[in-house]
């Protein structure tokens, strides 16, 4: 069998959901490729490949990014958080609980990215206004829900996180 020549490979190291990772990447790899194909973190979804739909949203050093637009080598030394890290404690994150309770999920393909955008928002603004929520998820397309149950879930999670503080 003919094998493809490996080319332009290099090692990078970064943190994913609290774990230190060292992984070999190609020059053309995007962050989403490394997460999904190398680390098998398939919770992060690809919907458009050009940063328009937000399904691939992860947090990079705390900020939401479209992982389809981040060249993998840029992740060197960074802290990456994906949907798989949300319930690392073994318990659902309040955002996840609220999404479940409010049926803020239909097909679920936008859900991981939506959760990560919401997480970034709540860290920065623990008590966001509805306007701030709407703006924070405006880069995450959802074709199923019409967004209302998602916004209600984020409002609810914010309230619950406040009371448990």
């Amino acid at each position: 069998m003919k094998k493809a020549e490996p080319k332009h490979k290099r090692l990078i190291s970064f943190t994913v959901n609290g774990d230190d990772i060292e992984v070999e990447i190609s020059a053309s790899d995007r962050l989403i490729d490394v997460l999904r194909n190398k680390l098998r973190l398939t919770g992060t979804k690809e919907g458009c490949g050009i940063g328009e739909c937000g399904a691939c949203t992860v947090l990079m050093d705390g900020a939401p990014v479209n992982s389809c637009l981040v060249p993998a080598f840029q992740a060197e030394g960074s802290v990456i958080e994906t949907v798989e890290g949300l319930d690392a404690s073994g318990k659902l994150h309040p955002l996840q609980e609220a999404f479940v309770e409010h049926t803020a999920i239909q097909c679920g393909y936008c859900t991981p990215g939506m959760l990560m955008s919401a997480l970034a928002l709540l860290r920065e603004h623990p008590e966001p206004t509805r306007e701030e929520i709407t703006r924070a998820i405006s880069g995450n397309l959802c074709r199923c829900t019409g967004y209302h149950q998602i916004i209600a879930a984020i409002e609810d999670a914010s309230a619950k996180m406040k009371t448990t503080e």
Binding site: R36, N37, R40, L41, T42, G43, T44, K45, E46, T82, V83, E84, L86, D87, L92, Q96, F99, V100, E101, T103, I105, G108, Y109, T111, P112, L115
Partner: peptide, 23 residues
């Protein structure tokens, strides 16, 4: 009744495997 979706938990955890997630 407003029964919670049976697939909701796997979907919010990112562990539900869609077809392109399989290898």
């Amino acid at each position: 009744a407003d029964v919670i979706r049976i697939d909701a938990k796997d979907k919010v955890r990112g562990v539900l495997k869609y077809m392109s997630d399989l290898s």
